[in-house]
């Protein structure tokens, strides 16, 4: 097909070639295409003038707007903090009870706490703060280190057994593994611990267990087993367990010991954020108390 043909449908000429039956029309580039080329190029040109764009050998054109993404985000964060300052300073300075009593501040704590807790704490303590195997529930009434505002703030600041220099330090010895108690003795004292929260055991076993408990455990968990918040030793008479209250779980705990690890948040979260979290936990506690009261 050496001769140029005219396509009857469009009226355009072909280029005069044929490849395996394929021909091409020599239609001019549609006007719309030129138009959009111009529009996009002008847009690009404007962007190049305004924004950092072209590399030179050791520097680059900074653009008329003089923007810089790092400065921009820093400004955005500063501006956001300034915007939050009115309520944030109140949270910083008011006593916790007043914050919780204040409807507006309390709502802000709840709203903010949800995300802060979800992104930082939920991995261990669960999305609804109810804990999990090895991680204490933060909604119950049982606290290792005390559940008042100051204690929670301190726990958050330094962590537990963390790498913070002032960390809270709590360790439950491995009575079995270290050979302090025999396997049988561990079983007996475990039964005794269960009896503290109301389970029936035989009198001889109770006696034997009480003896072992007094000799080994009472120094931390107290004579009656109600724990010691200054040592992080939990109350063993309530029905709240971190590692579980079954025979097997108790055996593992007493035989192998425990040393929970909670990170220090001082360098990761700001003071206000930590305060919000502590208040958020207290709110969860209040909700729990309210539920209990209803029942």
């Amino acid at each position: 097909m050496s001769v140029k043909e005219r396509d009857p449908l469009t009226g355009h000429q072909t280029t005069g070639h044929e490849w395996d039956g394929i021909t091409e029309l020599n239609t001019p580039v549609p006007r719309a295409v030129w138009f959009f080329i111009i529009v996009t190029h002008i847009w690009a040109l404007i962007a190049w003038i305004l924004l950092p764009t072209w590399p030179l050998l050791t520097t680059y054109t900074k653009g008329l707007l003089g923007v810089d993404q790092q400065e921009q985000v820093e400004e955005a964060v500063v501006a956001a903090n300034a915007q939050r300052a009115d309520w944030a300073t109140q949270i910083d300075h008011l006593p916790p009870q007043e914050v919780l009593a204040n409807g507006d501040l309390s709502r802000r704590v709840a709203e903010t706490g949800h995300q802060l807790f979800g992104d930082n704490c939920a991995g261990c303590h669960g999305t609804n703060a109810q804990g999990g195997p090895g991680f204490p529930s933060l909604t119950d009434a049982a606290w290792l280190w005390g559940g008042d505002f100051g204690n929670i703030m301190e726990t958050l600041r330094v962590g537990i057994n963390s790498d913070h220099p002032e960390t809270r330090f709590g360790q439950m010895m491995a009575f079995g593994r270290e050979g302090i108690l025999s396997r049988d003795e561990v079983r007996v004292v475990a039964d005794y611990v269960q009896s503290l929260s109301g389970e029936d055991i035989s009198a001889t076993r109770r006696e034997h267990g009480a003896q072992i408990f007094a000799d080994n455990c009472a120094s931390c968990h107290g004579d009656s087993g109600i724990g010691d918040a200054s040592l992080g030793a939990p109350n063993l008479t309530d029905d709240f367990w971190i590692y579980g209250g079954s025979d097997k779980a108790l055996f593992t705990t007493i035989f192998g010991g425990r040393q929970g690890w909670m990170p220090a948040w001082e360098n990761r979260l700001g003071l206000t954020e930590r305060k919000i979290l502590a208040l958020y936990l207290m709110q969860l506690g209040q909700q729990r108390d309210a539920q209990v009261a209803v029942k």
Binding site: N120, G123, C124, G134, D163, W261, M262, P263, R268
Partner: peptide, 8 residues
């Protein structure tokens, strides 16, 4: 780094 324990 440091956000969780090794154990976690």
């Amino acid at each position: 780094g440091g956000k969780y324990s090794d154990d976690w």
